[in-house]
Amino acid sequence: MFLQQLVNGLTIGGIYAMIAVGYTMIYGVIQLINFAHGEIYMLGAFFAITFISFLGLPFYIAFLVAMACCAVCGVLLDIVAYRPLRQSPRLAALITAIGMSIFLQNLAMIIWGSRPKPFPHGALPAYFEKTAVTFGGVNLSWFHLFIFTITIVMMVGLNLILKKTRWGKAMRAVAQNKTMAALTGINVNRVISYTFALAGALGGAAGIMVGAFYNAIYPTMGYVAGVKAFAAAVLGGIGSVPGAMLGGVVLGVAEALGAGYLSSLYRDGISYAVMIIVIILIPAGLFGKVLKETKKSM
């Protein structure tokens, strides 16, 4: 029982971590809570299901293509909605982010309908359901392993991108100080676009995996997942990538164990409560820098 919950928590936590990383990277470069990030995650799942059912693509190809589409969506979101407001107060950008989130959610509802959609029969590889490993009475399906693998690969890949590549270096520079980064010849807007692309791809991948895991995709799925991932980002310390990863996993485990042992009715409430408590007690999170309180919020 405990182990089973732990495994479930780790699986979902890894997925939260992938979304949370997107929040934290975007917050890092433009100091904006991108409320619409949860919608990118939802779009990822819908893209995948559409590619599978209309174009007949195999699951893995659809997975990659949908990730690419989400990256493009992220960039478009930035260019259309956020870039014109770069010089505006944060309140304006924040309201725009909420507006975009609601807009995309309802757009999806118009395009795909509001009922939960399953993946078409036989679209998911058949071995996903089969048990891969059994230990201590816990069955780990291949699908669990698939999610673990993808999560770890993407996290490691992201770290490599951020630490080793020129673009990663540029992203970190922009996150530290936009003006100085621009002075050293970095094209700040392009770096922000890359960040949105990266965050969008990760969010999209997370959406596809959750959609396949529960085999239900619906327009409001991004809303709850987005808030939980944001809670994870806050827990880890917003702006910190390793923090978001750890926060996601911790939150996923806390949620699974809390739902198992305390009350499954308050499953969603656990992440909200964690978020509020963390924000009140340790606003910098586990790994975060202390926020500049003097920075005007409006």
Partner: peptide
């Protein structure tokens, strides 16, 4: 009282969490 110390973004998200908790409480 505990949350208005924070910057605007955090305050916004805390209020959001609060209203969701109210709905969960009313439901459960």
């Amino acid at each position: 009282a505990p949350t208005l110390r924070l910057t605007g973004d955090y305050f916004a998200i805390v209020t959001f969490g609060f209203s969701e908790l109210v709905v969960l409480f009313l439901t459960n």
